[in-house]
């Protein structure tokens, strides 16, 4: 009879056992903040649909210190999402060949972050124009 009895180790708490996994869980966790922000906007949209008084109530709620603190936390979390999204991109994109050479990972991450900066400035410019 075989004496083999392969032992399968449990996976409990695996994400706490390596700093690399802790960071992974943190950047996966940014999804909670992305969802929270989308729901905030959804509430705003519903209030907009209900008319001027409802919309103004939502705007007023945005001016509370609690809302400011909430959005400050959202900003930090979603900024971290932006950073980690582009940081992993060299591993997720097919190789980009420029002039016969593979684009360096740092160039891809840097390019992504630059694109985010440009998109953000364009968005800010558009809102600024609408506001005038």
């Amino acid at each position: 009879m075989s004496k083999r009895r392969p032992y399968v180790r449990p996976m409990d708490g695996w994400w706490k056992k390596n700093p690399y996994f802790v960071e992974y869980m943190v950047h996966e966790g940014t999804a909670l903040f992305v969802a929270a922000y989308a729901f905030t906007l959804l509430v705003g949209l519903v209030r907009l649909g209900q008319g001027e008084a409802a919309w103004n109530g939502w705007l007023e709620a945005l001016k509370s210190p609690l809302s400011l603190a909430f959005h400050a936390v959202l900003l930090v979390a979603i900024l971290y999402h932006t950073y980690t999204w582009f940081k992993i991109m060299p591993r997720t994109l097919p190789p980009i060949i420029v002039g016969g050479k593979k684009l360096a990972p740092a160039t891809i991450t840097g390019g992504g972050l630059m694109a985010a900066l440009v998109a953000s400035l364009v968005l800010l410019g558009l809102v600024w124009r609408i506001a005038q």
């Binding site: 390596n18 690399y20 996994f21 992974y24 996966e28 591993r91």
Partner: peptide, 9 residues
């Protein structure tokens, strides 16, 4: 795969 990326590290 959830793009942990540690395999490549």
């Amino acid at each position: 795969c959830t793009a942990v990326g540690y395999c490549s590290e």
